[in-house]
Simulated assay, not measured.
Amino acid sequence: MGQPIPDFGKFLEHLRGSMSLREAARKSGLSHAYIRDLELERNRSTNDKITPSPDTLQKLSVAYGYPYTDLMVKAGHLSRGDVPSTPSNSPSDLNLTAVQYIEIGMKEVAYYGKDARIARNIDSLLDFSSFLDKLEEHGFRKMDTDLYVNFNHIRKYDEKRGRLHFDETGKGKSVIISAIRQKKYHDLIIRYVANNTNKSLEFSFGKSGAPASLNTVEENS
């Protein structure tokens, strides 16, 4: 056991940043009132001092994208000496190039490839949040609260249904992405689809002459 850092509640509030309490609650599965109690370090009903449990810290780690182990140390549940220098069962030993998408559950993380699914217990992935921060280097983008997609594998984009396919026919494996991420990454998805399927890009122009939309077109033989 270690010692909690001074003002740990304020540290949690800093991690939440501009995220609203209700958004933090949605992402973590905790109540917004309880999250605020944790930030104040007391139960506002009884005025008793409270400290988040390891399970609560795991949920906040995923919601805020902050390393679980670091939260455990800062909360006093672990000391730095308790953390092994080389985590066992680390996600870094996976071949991310072959992973099409990643789903994060409450207790496990599932990695999906073309013909395989690998599941790992979240509790065994000590620096999982730090790992998520590095996924973009491998072509992954966050498409929903619990979904990361490798854009290098996208072969078809169904814009109307908000669905990404990993084959050009659109009949195989696919994932549904959130509307806000679809809007954010629309053009980037189209560019990746064009690159992954060796197609060209076609711009449609509006009345003002500015590009209004971007689509893929078949290459001429």
Rank of each mutant, 00 (worst) to 15 (best):
G9L: 06
F11I: 02
E23Q: 10
A24K: 01
A24S: 12
R26K: 06
K27V: 10
K27L: 15
I35R: 02
D37R: 15
N43V: 00
S45R: 07
T46M: 01
K49G: 01
T51M: 07
T51C: 03
P52Q: 04
S53R: 07
S53L: 06
P54Q: 01
D55T: 10
D55P: 06
L57E: 08
S61L: 08
Y64A: 07
Y64V: 09
D70M: 12
G76C: 03
S88G: 14
P91W: 04
T97C: 08
A98M: 13
A98N: 14
Q100F: 13
M106T: 12
E108R: 15
G113T: 12
A116R: 10
I118E: 15
I118W: 10
R120P: 01
I122P: 00
S124Y: 11
F128N: 07
F131E: 04
L135G: 08
E136Q: 13
H138C: 09
K142E: 09
T145D: 08
D146Y: 14
I154N: 10
R155I: 11
D158S: 05
D158T: 01
E159N: 02
G162I: 03
R163K: 14
D167K: 03
D167F: 00
G170I: 05
G170Q: 05
G170L: 03
K171S: 12
V175S: 06
D187I: 00
D187A: 04
I190Y: 00
Y192T: 02
V193T: 03
N195K: 15
N195V: 02
N196M: 08
N198G: 11
K199I: 00
K199G: 00
S200A: 10
S208V: 07
P211A: 04
A212P: 12
N215M: 00
T216W: 02
E218A: 09
